[in-house]
Design a protein around this nucleic acid. Structure first.
Length: 375
DNA sequence: CGCAAATCAATCATGGAAGT
DNA sequence: ACTTCCATGATTGATTTGCG
């Protein structure tokens, strides 16, 4: 009778159906061929013949003809798809389609060498991509080729040892108190609950604010639980479409609780009264997607005349204010949802130094050197 | 050998352009 | 006055490297 792995199954109509691998399509999915028979053994025989045919073929010609973009699609759609988040999948797919496939069109995987990768990087340079983007394309390519080495498709990884553009150093932008005041003045008096106010007083990310529900706020214990993140990505299934992804934290570690200050609590409670939606920031009685939050944010920024800032700067602003009020780094790290304090330290070392310096200057006033003479 | 710095990999944010 | 699509760019967790 039918055994696991044979790929022979009994059909509802009484016949036996066997499947064999014919090859793979452009996306890397397996294409099956089918055989049928009234008896199990009959089907098994037919199937083994087919299998013999195709295994000979794939041993001789198929492996030689594997193209670079075939491998990439196989790597992404078969090997990676279920291991990575939809947002990452979408991102990778976009980079393959837009950059890798066109450049390595008609290039055989087995002939790929380091020089090709260097040329590719050069072409990305010329298309004026930032070094960050180039790096992320190459690092994805590197992992795909690493797997190809592992599967004996190529003997060594051509990405090994390529020279990447220098990482552009990031400069954290945050609002000073004057800018913050100006922004709040407008945001606070909006009728709807303001994403900007929440960002400035919790440090939450835009996607997290987008997914925040009233039920995530524990007014009794003054806590906000971050449980969701919303983003819109190019559709995984339908081409030329996008879709909303509501990400659930994979582990309990992904979630975090943020304490609510007194004023924020008052603000939120007031807004909750007039809210009819499950979501704190609502749009048509549902969530407000990040693009819209950003759109509204930009209008407020313009109105408040504080210059050019990104929404993410509000998160930095929150952290900076925390540091200024002398918060300890471990606490801040927890609130921001960082995995370790290392990350937090890396980003905020400078502002920590600023507050230490000004603390020193305060102390310094007490030491009046001239008075020594009169003593 | 232990540690932090550097780099890689995965994920999230941004905003122009065009559509409704 | 948003809303959708899409490619680029930045952030952040994980791993490797390199240095005393």
């Amino acid at each position: 009778m039918s055994k696991r792995g044979e790929n022979i199954y009994k059909r509802k109509d009484g016949r036996w159906e066997g499947r064999y691998r014919k090859g793979r399509n452009k996306e890397g999915r397996i294409i099956y061929g089918y055989v049928y028979g009234k008896q199990y053994n009959e089907t098994k025989e037919k199937l083994s013949k087919k299998n013999a045919d195709y295994s000979i073929r794939s041993e001789t010609s198929a492996p030689e003809e594997m193209m670079v973009d075939e491998w990439l699609n196989y790597w992404l759609n078969i090997l990676m798809k279920n291991r990575i988040k939809p947002s990452t999948y979408s991102n990778y797919r976009g980079r393959i389609q837009r950059h890798l496939s066109p450049f390595f069109k008609n290039k055989q995987l087995s002939t790929l060498e380091t020089a090709d990768i260097d040329k590719f990087i050069y072409s990305l340079y010329r298309s004026e991509l930032s070094s960050n983007s180039i790096r992320s394309i190459i690092s994805m390519l590197r992992s795909a080729l690493k797997k190809a080495v592992n599967d004996n498709k190529i003997s060594k990884n051509p990405c090994q040892g390529v020279l990447l553009p220098a990482l552009s150093k990031r400069e954290i932008k945050s609002l000073d108190k004057r800018q913050q005041k100006k922004l709040e003045q407008i945001a606070l008096y909006k009728k709807e609950c303001s994403a900007e106010v929440i960002a400035l007083y919790t440090g939450m990310r835009i996607g997290e604010i987008s997914g925040l529900k009233w039920e995530d706020i524990d007014f009794k214990n003054n806590k906000i639980f971050v449980k969701r993140t919303i983003s819109r990505i190019p559709s995984v299934t339908e081409p030329h479409k996008t879709e909303i992804i509501i990400g659930k934290p994979k582990s309990i570690n992904g979630e975090r609780a943020i304490p609510i200050s007194k004023n924020l609590k008052r603000y939120l409670m007031e807004k909750k009264q007039s809210s009819t939606s499950l979501y704190v920031i609502s749009c048509k009685n549902s969530f407000t997607e990040p693009r819209i939050i950003n759109y509204r944010f930009k209008k407020i920024v313009e109105e408040s005349k504080i210059g050019q800032v990104h929404f993410h700067a509000l998160r930095h602003t929150f952290a900076t204010r925390c540091v200024e009020s002398g918060i300890d780094i471990a606490t801040l790290s927890k609130i921001l949802g960082h995995a370790s304090t290392k990350m937090t330290l890396d980003i905020y070392t400078d502002s920590l130094w600023e507050t230490r310096r000004s603390a020193m200057m305060l102390i310094d006033r007490q030491l009046n050197y001239d008075e020594r003479i009169t003593l």
